[in-house]
Simulated assay, not measured.
Amino acid sequence: MLLLALDSSATASVALGSYQGGTLTVLAHRATTDTRSHAEVMSPFVEQVLAEAGYRGRDLDALITGTGPGPFTGLRAGIVTARTLAFAWDKPLYGLMSLQALAEAAADTARARGHQKFLVASDARRREVYTAVYELTGTGYTLLDGPTVGSASQAPHLPSYGFGAGLYPQDLESQEGFESLQPDAPSLLAAACRLGVENLSQDTSALYLRESDAKVPLARKKALGS
Rank of each mutant, 00 (worst) to 15 (best):
T137M: 03
A31S: 15
Q116E: 14
V46L: 06
R194L: 11
T33W: 01
Y134V: 02
W89D: 09
S160T: 15
Q170H: 10
A77F: 00
T33N: 08
A103Q: 07
Y94F: 15
M1C: 05
E104Y: 01
G164A: 02
D59G: 07
A53K: 14
S160V: 00
A219R: 09
V216T: 13
G150A: 09
Y130H: 11
P156D: 09
A86H: 04
L96S: 13
L136Y: 02
L200G: 13
F87G: 05
K215I: 13
N199D: 12
S160Q: 00
P71M: 01
Y130W: 13
P92M: 02
E40T: 09
T131I: 11
T33E: 09
D184K: 05
F87I: 11
L144A: 09
L181T: 12
G70W: 00
D145R: 07
G17N: 05
K117F: 03
G68A: 14
F45L: 05
D213F: 03
F45E: 08
L158A: 07
V129P: 12
G196S: 11
A77D: 06
A112W: 01
G68L: 15
D34T: 02
I64N: 12
M1F: 04
R76K: 11
G138E: 15
Y19W: 15
G68P: 15
R56M: 06
D123I: 01
R30V: 05
V41F: 03
F163P: 00
A53S: 12
G70K: 00
P44H: 08
G57V: 08
D145G: 02
